[in-house]
């Protein structure tokens, strides 16, 4: 479980996060939603330690990140997998080498063992036959899959995904969403996902946090969000005609 207490983060005079509390449970897909620019990426980067929050505490299973020494922090990071908004694959390495990279860096596995693990991870994201290709030679959806495969290579306890399905067609988006959820449940990972895609929210929203103006404006699950009457939520959720008609049907039925 990850516990976030009163996280604040500003860039100069621009207050992006104004004090956010949250708890993310193990084995669940926790979603952070909000408009573009609402601070989702900043929040996620605070969680993984790429941004230093100005205030507040982050606890990974009761380990306060601020109180860890360099060695402990290093070890914690090896328990973290992250999928970046732009995949962030190493473009000088092939697909296979990308997934193998953390294994090379942090494990004492033999070559055969590593190869098996890489094949397993690429299989898991249903990506085959692209092992020897470079990131520039594969599609955006495949890049996302490789990024997910790389993020699970070390068997992470915590998984962070920044808009894992942005820029993908609706079908592929659903596949990626479900993949992340399956992996989360299968290995009991604590997963936090940034998204502004309502389809993902309805598909995999076990626990949803809505960010607005640097604050947590709403919290609940996917069944609750669709019934919510809070103006912020209805404004965000029911922008598209599809969801408006769903709501109408729900009201009348």
């Amino acid at each position: 479980m990850i516990e976030v207490q009163n996280i604040q983060k500003s860039f100069g005079a621009h207050e992006v996060l104004k004090g956010i509390d949250a708890q993310f449970e193990q084995g669940k897909t926790n979603l952070i939603i909000g408009q573009s620019g609402s601070g989702k990426t900043v929040f996620l980067k605070c969680l993984v330690g790429l941004h230093e929050p100005d205030n507040g505490a982050i606890l990974f299973n009761d380990r306060n990140t601020a109180q860890l020494d360099q060695k402990e922090r290093q070890l914690l990071r090896q328990e973290i997998g992250m999928v970046f908004q732009g995949s962030a694959l190493f473009d000088s390495l092939t697909v296979e080498e990308n997934v193998m990279f953390p294994l090379n860096m942090f494990t004492r596995m033999g070559p055969g063992e590593k190869k098996d693990r890489v094949d397993f991870c690429l299989n898991r994201v249903k990506l085959e036959g692209a092992n020897k290709k470079y990131p520039a030679e594969i599609s955006g959806g495949m890049m996302k899959r490789v990024a997910i495969a790389r993020s699970i290579a070390m068997n992470p306890k915590y998984l962070f995904c920044d808009e894992p399905n942005s820029g993908l067609d609706p079908q592929t988006a659903v596949v990626i969403d479900n993949l992340v959820r399956e992996i989360t449940q299968e290995y009991g990972i604590t997963t936090v996902i940034n998204t502004h895609d309502m389809n993902s929210v309805m598909e995999i929203g076990d626990h949803i946090i809505f960010l607005k103006n640097g604050l947590k404006a709403w919290e609940g699950d996917r069944h609750e969000i669709i019934r919510s009457d809070q103006p912020d939520i209805t404004e965000f959720v029911f922008t598209s005609e599809l969801f408006k008609s769903i709501r109408k049907a729900q009201r009348s039925g």
């Binding site: 330690g49 790429l50 990071r77 962030a88 190493f90 860096m105 070390m154």
Partner: peptide, 10 residues
């Protein structure tokens, strides 16, 4: 963000 990816890995 490849540098960030390295940092997150530790």
């Amino acid at each position: 963000e490849q540098i960030d990816a390295l940092e997150v890995m530790g």
